[in-house]
Design a protein around this nucleic acid. Structure first.
Lengths: 216, 216, 216, 216
DNA sequence: GATTAATCGAGACGGTACGTCATGTCTTAGC
DNA sequence: GCTAAGACATGACGTACCGTCTCGATTAATC
């Protein structure tokens, strides 16, 4: 769930609940235009200057909004930036049913690499860091990025299990980590490039490891 | 290399090189006592309050040092904190030769998990985040933490190759990432616990993947 | 003019001029309470510790204001202190019409000496020094202290000219300096006390010098 | 007396007194070259940047001396700068015996104005300010600048008294202040130029005032 | 010629204050 | 009731000088 929505709910909770069938909201309604402009400004600044140098002050100025408005709808910088990121980058990653795990997995991992090697990856790095430093941001990070990606992967793997390409008793959480973990590691630490061949080889090893019935 | 050393070298570089066998250092020599106290203070604050809340001001105050002294020897907070962390936590991770890859690897991975599940892990998270946000810190992170850990792992794997337990043509960089990547991923995102069984299962999959001669 | 007003005007100048009859000032208005507290704090510190030891930091702390607020409204320490001084010490110096130059002048000069021999004089010394060292402070000093004092003196002298007690063709600027100069000199250099008899004798010499038609 | 000498005496006083006729100072003697270079540096900086911006650090660097050396021989910045000023500007002001007060006085006052309207005046302003802010500097200022100037003036006036040009019973301290005070006032406050005609007119008024036997 | 002691340079050090920046809150007037 | 403008306290930043304190090197007078 959006951190914005959480904040909005908290605000709303303080007020007496409006009668359900007739909202009767008084006063000027919230300007959705403002929200849009704020997120655009945040996204642009994020892309230009990175997470650290993107300040609430700068967002407000560029959006032509006031800081009060920002803080009314988002509890802190991380929330705005996350919202900005996820309204721009709502890319789902390819997980079409191709009838073959190996093909599907390779395609999926390559798609992930491609996404992450571009502008998106640069932004993601900032979000991860913030998620690590701040628990609330971490929550948002898990819910809005990690969970959807894992759900896609899990769907892919479950199809393979149904097709009998993978053993049924396997812990898919573990497999997901085995596949994504190395990608995130290279993305964050940047000790090695995040190439397609790396993704391919990783798929090979993990798939073999899952399907090979050998000892140990 | 230590960020401190980098700074010190920059200073030194401005001066004509002293004859190698006779340093002829002019001026009051650097107080090692101060360095020690600063690192202790930084380490303590890091442990108590985390990376974000550890400020140069607080370090200086607790160390009884002046801010100027901090900035004389370390270019920024990350440098001090990294130095502090690495002077305290110079833990090498178990990689004794046990004559069997599987045993060694499992032991090594478990040792890593154990280390990282404790106080050290909490600190590491902050360092990673800083390393992601700031290129200089990232450099320090790679050189002072990632590289040593990878070297240990590589030594372990190379022993296995020599023993004939692993195929020779394998890309060990890839294998290292396949093993460490998932651990870092869980450490940072905290979507699942970093348990021994997770480490064990991961070893199993990767080792099978490497040793299994099957297609694809 | 107040240095504060100068700063405020600079701010205002950036914005399009508001319609004169309707200011339409947007944003939170300046807190006059803060201004008052700052000036009180500055005045108190000035009296307690002198100009040199009065720091912006201390003013802010005692006023319960932030340094940012100080720097928003005053460009530097001198400006704050001058403002503080002149809001407390808006003493005009006696220049009642007594119908006789000699009496009036003597009374005026004695009043000046009395003022300047007390607490006010101690503060004035600091302001003069700052005015000498810093051109902006010098400007403030001339406009907010020297000019009003000279205007009082000039009025006194002009009355005397109208009454026919002094020759009309005299340069009153010169006369003013001849009267005030020696007082400031003793105030600043403190080589001799600034006594009433000194003021009296000085008046005598200058008045005689002006009225005596003798050669040279 | 030089502030330097005061400091030197303080140092010396800690040591057992040397036999009077034979100093027997052991160790490396003080380098007069250093003293010279320091004073040159201080004078140059003072001329270039004014009193406020002339720092001990800058003096030391330009002189190629160490700060310890500065503080060994001078107790603070004011002392160095005063010493520097007075070793360069040992100008006595014209007070030749011309046989006529009016001529002599006019010439003397004009010489003073000329001196003070140039580079020397700029420096003097800083010294006065420092003398006002700091009691020790004030002492130095009175002894090393004010007193000599007053002595010259007093000699001039005493000659006039002896010649019978001025009444004998006059308080010459007062007269000196009446003459110099207005000059210092214009020098410091800069509300009006310090012109020859101003000096001349001032002489005229004061001389008339002294010589005119009229009432009051 | 060796010893001894004061000097010198370089520069590290604890401290105080500086002036600036971003955060998150609060206060108006306008819509 | 929302909004823009912007004042405000807080707290940290990185820098500048201060005056003190080692160091090793230099320089005479004394032994």
């Amino acid at each position: 769930m959006s951190t914005r929505r959480i904040a909005a709910q908290a605000k709303a909770a303080r007020k007496p609940a409006a009668p359900s069938r007739m909202p009767a909201r008084r006063g000027r309604p919230r300007s959705l235009d403002v929200r849009r402009k704020v997120l655009e400004a945040a996204g642009a600044l994020l892309a230009e200057r990175g997470f650290k140098a993107t300040t609430m002050e700068a967002i407000a100025e560029r959006a032509g909004a006031s800081k009060v408005t920002l803080y009314r709808w988002w509890p802190n910088k991380a929330a705005v930036v996350f919202d900005a990121f996820f309204s721009e980058h709502r890319t789902n990653i390819d997980s079409a049913d191709r009838g073959d795990v190996s093909d599907e997995l390779r395609a999926h991992m390559r798609a992930f690499c491609k996404l992450v090697n571009g502008q998106t990856g640069k932004l993601l790095r900032g979000l991860v860091a913030e998620g690590v430093l701040d628990p609330v941001a971490g929550q948002a990070w898990r819910e809005r990025w990690v969970a959807p990606r894992r759900a896609e992967m899990r769907a892919l793997l479950e199809r393979a299990v149904l097709r009998g390409e993978l053993p049924a008793e396997q812990d898919l959480e573990l497999v997901t980590d085995a596949l994504f973990g190395p990608l995130y590691h290279r993305l964050l630490t940047q000790h090695q490039p995040l190439s397609f061949s790396f993704a391919d080889d990783l798929c090979t090893i993990v798939l073999r490891g899952l399907r090979c019935p050998s000892a140990k």
